[in-house]
Computed example of a mutant assay.
Amino acid sequence: MNDLFDLTGKTAVVTGASSGLGAEAAIAYAQAGADVALLDIKVDGLIQLKTEIENIGRKTVTIECDVTKEESVKTAVEKILDMFGKIDILLNNAGVAVPGSVEHMTEEEWDKSFNTNVKGVFLISKYIIPQMKEKKYGKIVNIASVNAVVADKNNKFIRHSYNASKSAIIGLTKGMACSYAKYGITVNAIGPGLFKTKMTTALFESEKFLNEYNEMNPTGRPGKKDELNGTVLYFSSDASSYVQGQFVIVDGGGVIV
């Protein structure tokens, strides 16, 4: 049964890999047997992670990549294919959370959310999917958010562009899943609840917010740093070979429908 989650011989690509959930997922991939390409807009933050993965005994490469720029994405994918010869798994993790309501956000702030959170998924998928189609195999995992389906009720943390862009990822996931299933490619999405990352620093610094979150959540706490990895590995492995276009919320039961 454990063989279903074995990623030996696979090559995984992680965007936004320098910290938080992306870094944790990259390590989980390596521990499951995969070689890992680490992509981020700045490679300085990838040095320690690269060393950790190499110490596990897996091959890895760090590549500077701005997922909002097509040429940057194209070049990054070419480098990965030159080094590893193939890409089996894509974790679309790069994202931003721009604060503000629609009446107070600038156009630039709105565009920043959609360029990173949605356009970034589109661009890197565009250049990775063709070789997945060619070899009739691929696992694409898109990181959305619980905020794709639940709005922030604390006015201090309103992020309308984040809500909208993460909802868009769910729609994109479903469309891609339908189109590429016949090529042996699965496309699914994950909606993390509250985990401690650079993006959520302000939330963890607010005692009021944390108390409200813990009271609302059945587990009484935010997620721990490695508690997303099981779902990531499920969608990235043959354990989910017949699962398509699904959105799984990982938030300790805060949203139960």
Score class of each variant (00 low, 15 high):
Asp3Lys: 15
Asp3Ser: 14
Ala12Gln: 04
Ala12Gly: 02
Ser19Leu: 11
Gly20Pro: 09
Ala23Met: 10
Ala26Leu: 09
Ile27Tyr: 10
Ala28Met: 07
Tyr29Phe: 14
Gln31Leu: 09
Ala32Asn: 13
Asp35Gln: 04
Val36Trp: 05
Val43His: 09
Asp44Met: 02
Gly45Pro: 04
Gly45Glu: 00
Leu46Trp: 03
Ile47Tyr: 12
Lys50Val: 14
Glu54His: 09
Glu54Thr: 02
Ile56Met: 02
Ile56Asp: 02
Ile56Lys: 02
Gly57Lys: 08
Glu64Lys: 10
Glu64Ser: 14
Lys69Ser: 14
Glu70Asn: 09
Glu70Cys: 08
Glu71Asp: 11
Lys74Phe: 08
Val77Trp: 09
Val77His: 11
Glu78Asn: 11
Ile80Gln: 03
Leu81Gln: 11
Asp82Leu: 06
Gly85Asn: 08
Ile87Arg: 10
Ile87Cys: 05
Asp88Gly: 08
Leu90Lys: 05
Leu91Lys: 07
Asn92Gly: 12
Ala94Asn: 02
Val96Met: 00
Ala97Arg: 15
Val98Phe: 08
Pro99Arg: 03
Ser101Gln: 12
Val102Pro: 14
Glu103Asn: 13
Glu108Leu: 14
Glu109Gly: 04
Asp111Trp: 12
Asp111Glu: 15
Lys112Gly: 05
Lys112Cys: 01
Ser113Lys: 08
Phe114His: 01
Phe114Ser: 00
Asn115Thr: 07
Asn117Arg: 04
Lys119Arg: 07
Val121Trp: 09
Ile124Thr: 07
Ile124Gln: 13
Ser125Asp: 13
Ser125Asn: 14
Tyr127His: 10
Ile128Cys: 14
Ile129Trp: 06
Ile129Phe: 10
Ile129Val: 02
Ile129Cys: 10
Pro130Trp: 07
Pro130His: 10
Pro130Ile: 07
Gln131Phe: 11
Gln131Tyr: 13
Lys135Ala: 03
Lys136Val: 04
Lys139Pro: 09
Ile143Leu: 09
Val146Phe: 15
Asn147Pro: 12
Val150Arg: 13
Val150Thr: 14
Asn154Ser: 09
Asn155Ala: 15
Lys156Leu: 01
Ala164Asn: 03
Lys166Pro: 00
Ala168Pro: 00
Ala168Val: 00
Ala168Tyr: 00
Ala168Arg: 10
Ile169Tyr: 05
Gly171Glu: 08
Met176Gln: 13
Cys178Arg: 15
Tyr180Thr: 05
Ala181Pro: 01
Ala181Cys: 08
Tyr183His: 06
Tyr183Glu: 01
Ile185Gly: 05
Thr186His: 05
Asn188Leu: 12
Ala189Lys: 01
Pro192Met: 07
Phe195Thr: 06
Leu203Ala: 01
Leu203Tyr: 06
Leu203Gln: 02
Ser206Phe: 01
Glu207Ser: 01
Glu207Asn: 08
Phe209Gln: 00
Asn211Trp: 05
Asn211Gln: 04
Asn214Val: 10
Glu215Thr: 05
Glu215Trp: 02
Asn217Pro: 03
Asn217Leu: 02
Pro218Met: 11
Pro222Phe: 12
Gly223Phe: 03
Leu228Asn: 13
Leu228Glu: 12
Leu233Asn: 04
Leu233Thr: 03
Ser236Ile: 02
Ser236Met: 04
Tyr242Asn: 05
Gly245Glu: 06
Gln246Val: 15
Phe247Arg: 06
Phe247Ile: 04
Phe247Ser: 06
Gly252Arg: 07
Val255Phe: 15
Ile256Thr: 14
